[in-house]
Computed example of a mutant assay.
Amino acid sequence: MSIKKKLGMGIATGVLAVGLIGGGTFAYFSDTEVNAGSFAAGTLDIDVKGNDTNNAIIKVDNIKPGDTMTRDLKLNNVGSLDISKVLLTSKYTVKDAKGDNKGADFGEYIKVKLINKDSGKEVIRETTLKKLSEAGETDLLRLLSASVNSALGSGKSINLQVKFEFVDNNKDQNVFQGDSLTLDWIFDAKQTKGEER
Protein backbone atom coordinates (compact mmCIF):
# COMPACT_ATOMS: atom_id res chain seq x y z
CA MET A 1 0.00 0.00 0.00
CA SER A 2 1.32 3.38 -0.91
CA ILE A 3 2.06 6.10 1.55
CA LYS A 4 -0.81 8.20 0.21
CA LYS A 5 -3.25 5.34 0.78
CA LYS A 6 -1.85 4.65 4.27
CA LEU A 7 -2.06 8.32 5.13
CA GLY A 8 -5.59 8.60 3.74
CA MET A 9 -6.64 5.45 5.62
CA GLY A 10 -5.20 6.84 8.88
CA ILE A 11 -7.03 10.13 8.48
CA ALA A 12 -10.29 8.32 7.69
CA THR A 13 -9.85 6.09 10.76
CA GLY A 14 -9.19 9.17 12.92
CA VAL A 15 -12.26 10.98 11.61
CA LEU A 16 -14.38 7.85 12.23
CA ALA A 17 -13.00 7.54 15.79
CA VAL A 18 -13.73 11.21 16.55
CA GLY A 19 -17.23 10.77 15.10
CA LEU A 20 -17.85 7.73 17.28
CA ILE A 21 -16.56 9.49 20.39
CA GLY A 22 -18.66 12.59 19.69
CA GLY A 23 -21.71 10.55 18.79
CA GLY A 24 -21.22 8.24 21.76
CA THR A 25 -21.71 10.98 24.31
CA PHE A 26 -25.35 11.35 23.29
CA ALA A 27 -26.07 7.65 23.76
CA TYR A 28 -25.66 7.56 27.61
CA PHE A 29 -28.62 7.83 30.02
CA SER A 30 -28.69 10.91 32.21
CA ASP A 31 -30.55 12.04 35.31
CA THR A 32 -30.73 15.44 37.02
CA GLU A 33 -31.95 16.00 40.55
CA VAL A 34 -32.18 19.22 42.59
CA ASN A 35 -31.74 18.93 46.35
CA ALA A 36 -32.81 22.23 47.93
CA GLY A 37 -31.71 23.39 51.37
CA SER A 38 -32.61 26.30 53.61
CA PHE A 39 -31.34 28.26 56.57
CA ALA A 40 -33.65 29.93 59.06
CA ALA A 41 -32.24 31.98 61.91
CA GLY A 42 -33.76 31.58 65.34
CA THR A 43 -34.99 34.47 67.47
CA LEU A 44 -33.61 35.74 70.75
CA ASP A 45 -36.30 37.60 72.66
CA ILE A 46 -36.43 38.37 76.38
CA ASP A 47 -39.69 39.79 77.71
CA VAL A 48 -39.55 41.42 81.14
CA LYS A 49 -42.77 41.93 83.05
CA GLY A 50 -43.03 44.20 86.05
CA ASN A 51 -46.20 44.56 88.06
CA ASP A 52 -46.57 48.32 88.24
CA THR A 53 -48.16 50.84 85.89
CA ASN A 54 -47.03 50.43 82.27
CA ASN A 55 -45.16 47.26 83.21
CA ALA A 56 -42.51 49.25 85.12
CA ILE A 57 -40.46 47.55 87.81
CA ILE A 58 -41.59 50.19 90.31
CA LYS A 59 -43.47 53.46 90.47
CA VAL A 60 -44.07 54.87 93.92
CA ASP A 61 -44.57 58.35 95.40
CA ASN A 62 -44.22 59.94 98.84
CA ILE A 63 -41.62 57.54 100.23
CA LYS A 64 -39.81 58.27 103.47
CA PRO A 65 -36.77 56.78 105.20
CA GLY A 66 -37.57 53.28 106.43
CA ASP A 67 -40.16 52.50 103.70
CA THR A 68 -39.85 49.16 101.86
CA MET A 69 -41.39 48.25 98.52
CA THR A 70 -41.49 44.69 97.14
CA ARG A 71 -42.22 44.13 93.45
CA ASP A 72 -42.39 41.06 91.23
CA LEU A 73 -40.32 40.75 88.09
CA LYS A 74 -40.72 37.99 85.50
CA LEU A 75 -38.10 37.16 82.85
CA ASN A 76 -39.74 35.34 79.93
CA ASN A 77 -37.85 33.74 77.04
CA VAL A 78 -40.36 34.27 74.22
CA GLY A 79 -37.83 33.58 71.45
CA SER A 80 -36.98 30.29 69.78
CA LEU A 81 -33.38 30.12 71.09
CA ASP A 82 -32.07 29.39 74.58
CA ILE A 83 -30.58 32.30 76.51
CA SER A 84 -27.20 31.86 78.22
CA LYS A 85 -27.01 35.24 79.96
CA VAL A 86 -29.38 37.98 81.04
CA LEU A 87 -27.26 41.04 81.74
CA LEU A 88 -28.85 43.72 83.92
CA THR A 89 -27.56 47.27 83.63
CA SER A 90 -28.92 49.78 86.13
CA LYS A 91 -29.00 53.52 85.51
CA TYR A 92 -30.69 56.29 87.43
CA THR A 93 -30.95 60.05 87.56
CA VAL A 94 -31.81 62.12 90.59
CA LYS A 95 -33.80 65.32 90.48
CA ASP A 96 -32.76 67.42 93.46
CA ALA A 97 -35.80 69.42 94.58
CA LYS A 98 -33.86 71.97 96.59
CA GLY A 99 -30.76 72.11 94.43
CA ASP A 100 -28.34 71.29 97.23
CA ASN A 101 -28.00 67.68 98.34
CA LYS A 102 -24.64 68.55 99.90
CA GLY A 103 -22.92 65.71 98.04
CA ALA A 104 -25.47 63.09 99.12
CA ASP A 105 -26.66 60.69 96.40
CA PHE A 106 -30.28 59.52 96.74
CA GLY A 107 -29.33 56.25 94.96
CA GLU A 108 -26.92 55.45 97.78
CA TYR A 109 -29.87 55.33 100.18
CA ILE A 110 -32.06 53.01 98.10
CA LYS A 111 -31.20 49.43 99.04
CA VAL A 112 -31.99 46.69 96.49
CA LYS A 113 -32.50 42.99 97.21
CA LEU A 114 -32.83 40.66 94.22
CA ILE A 115 -34.76 37.58 95.30
CA ASN A 116 -35.27 34.27 93.46
CA LYS A 117 -39.00 33.77 93.95
CA ASP A 118 -38.89 30.32 92.30
CA SER A 119 -36.56 28.89 94.96
CA GLY A 120 -38.23 29.91 98.18
CA LYS A 121 -37.28 33.58 98.10
CA GLU A 122 -33.50 33.16 98.21
CA VAL A 123 -31.67 36.53 98.16
CA ILE A 124 -29.26 36.42 95.22
CA ARG A 125 -27.91 39.97 95.48
CA GLU A 126 -28.13 42.77 98.03
CA THR A 127 -26.70 46.18 97.25
CA THR A 128 -27.67 49.82 96.74
CA LEU A 129 -28.88 51.42 93.51
CA LYS A 130 -25.64 53.39 93.41
CA LYS A 131 -23.40 50.31 93.69
CA LEU A 132 -25.57 48.31 91.28
CA SER A 133 -25.29 51.11 88.72
CA GLU A 134 -21.53 51.46 89.22
CA ALA A 135 -21.04 47.69 88.82
CA GLY A 136 -21.99 47.79 85.13
CA GLU A 137 -23.55 44.56 83.86
CA THR A 138 -24.85 41.98 86.35
CA ASP A 139 -25.46 38.48 84.94
CA LEU A 140 -28.77 37.46 86.53
CA LEU A 141 -28.55 33.86 85.26
CA ARG A 142 -25.12 33.47 86.85
CA LEU A 143 -26.53 34.70 90.16
CA LEU A 144 -29.37 32.21 89.80
CA SER A 145 -27.15 29.32 88.64
CA ALA A 146 -27.24 27.58 92.02
CA SER A 147 -30.98 27.08 91.69
CA VAL A 148 -31.71 27.02 87.94
CA ASN A 149 -30.08 25.60 84.83
CA SER A 150 -27.30 27.66 83.30
CA ALA A 151 -29.58 28.65 80.40
CA LEU A 152 -33.09 30.03 80.15
CA GLY A 153 -34.73 27.73 77.61
CA SER A 154 -37.14 28.82 74.93
CA GLY A 155 -40.63 29.21 76.39
CA LYS A 156 -39.32 29.22 79.98
CA SER A 157 -39.47 31.97 82.59
CA ILE A 158 -37.89 32.98 85.88
CA ASN A 159 -39.79 34.70 88.67
CA LEU A 160 -37.87 37.26 90.70
CA GLN A 161 -38.79 39.69 93.40
CA VAL A 162 -37.09 42.99 94.00
CA LYS A 163 -37.25 44.55 97.44
CA PHE A 164 -36.39 48.24 97.59
CA GLU A 165 -35.77 50.07 100.85
CA PHE A 166 -35.28 53.76 101.50
CA VAL A 167 -32.58 53.31 104.12
CA ASP A 168 -33.13 55.16 107.39
CA ASN A 169 -29.65 56.01 108.66
CA ASN A 170 -31.01 57.39 111.96
CA LYS A 171 -29.66 60.82 111.05
CA ASP A 172 -31.06 63.95 109.48
CA GLN A 173 -32.01 63.08 105.86
CA ASN A 174 -33.84 66.31 105.06
CA VAL A 175 -31.64 66.87 101.98
CA PHE A 176 -33.78 64.25 100.19
CA GLN A 177 -37.17 65.86 100.86
CA GLY A 178 -38.99 66.36 97.56
CA ASP A 179 -36.24 64.63 95.53
CA SER A 180 -37.13 62.10 92.85
CA LEU A 181 -35.18 59.28 91.26
CA THR A 182 -35.82 57.89 87.77
CA LEU A 183 -34.64 54.30 87.36
CA ASP A 184 -33.86 52.43 84.14
CA TRP A 185 -33.05 48.73 84.18
CA ILE A 186 -31.81 47.38 80.86
CA PHE A 187 -32.00 43.62 80.33
CA ASP A 188 -29.67 42.28 77.62
CA ALA A 189 -30.16 38.63 76.65
CA LYS A 190 -27.30 36.65 75.08
CA GLN A 191 -27.58 33.43 73.08
CA THR A 192 -25.99 30.13 74.05
CA LYS A 193 -22.84 29.03 72.19
CA GLY A 194 -23.13 27.74 68.63
CA GLU A 195 -23.20 23.97 68.16
CA GLU A 196 -22.86 21.29 65.48
CA ARG A 197 -26.25 20.91 63.75
Rank of each mutant, 00 (worst) to 15 (best):
M1P: 08
I3M: 12
K6T: 12
G10H: 00
G10I: 10
I11W: 07
A12Y: 08
A12E: 07
T13F: 15
G14W: 04
V18R: 01
G19A: 14
G19Q: 01
L20R: 07
L20A: 15
G22Q: 04
G22K: 00
T25K: 10
A27L: 15
Y28P: 00
Y28T: 13
F29M: 12
T32A: 10
E33A: 09
G37C: 02
G37R: 10
A41Q: 13
G42K: 09
G42S: 12
L44W: 11
L44I: 15
I46M: 09
I46R: 01
I46W: 02
K49P: 00
G50Y: 09
G50H: 09
T53V: 14
A56Q: 15
I57N: 06
K59D: 13
K59M: 01
K59L: 08
K59V: 05
V60A: 05
I63L: 10
K64W: 00
K64V: 14
K64I: 06
P65Q: 05
P65M: 08
P65H: 08
P65S: 08
G66D: 02
T68H: 08
M69G: 00
T70S: 14
R71F: 00
R71I: 06
D72C: 03
L73K: 06
G79F: 04
S80Y: 00
S80L: 05
S80C: 02
L81Y: 03
D82C: 00
V86S: 01
V86L: 00
V86M: 02
T89G: 11
T93R: 11
V94M: 04
A97Q: 10
A97R: 01
K98H: 01
G99Q: 06
G99I: 08
D100T: 06
D100V: 04
N101L: 04
N101R: 11
N101A: 10
K102H: 03
G103Q: 06
A104M: 06
G107N: 05
G107A: 09
I110T: 05
V112F: 05
K113V: 04
I115K: 03
I115G: 02
K117P: 02
K117M: 00
S119D: 13
V123Q: 11
R125P: 01
E126P: 02
T127F: 02
T127N: 10
T127P: 04
T128V: 05
T128H: 01
L129Q: 08
K131Y: 01
L132D: 13
E134V: 09
A135T: 14
G136L: 08
T138R: 02
T138G: 04
D139S: 03
L140M: 03
L141E: 06
L141K: 02
L143R: 04
S145R: 12
S145W: 08
S145K: 14
A146R: 14
S147T: 14
S147E: 12
V148G: 04
N149Q: 12
A151I: 13
G153A: 15
G155S: 09
N159D: 15
N159F: 04
Q161P: 04
F164P: 07
E165H: 08
V167T: 14
N169R: 11
N169K: 14
N170F: 07
N174M: 05
Q177E: 13
S180N: 12
T182Q: 13
T182G: 10
T182L: 11
L183S: 06
L183H: 15
D184F: 10
F187D: 10
F187V: 10
A189P: 15
Q191M: 09
K193V: 15
R197E: 12
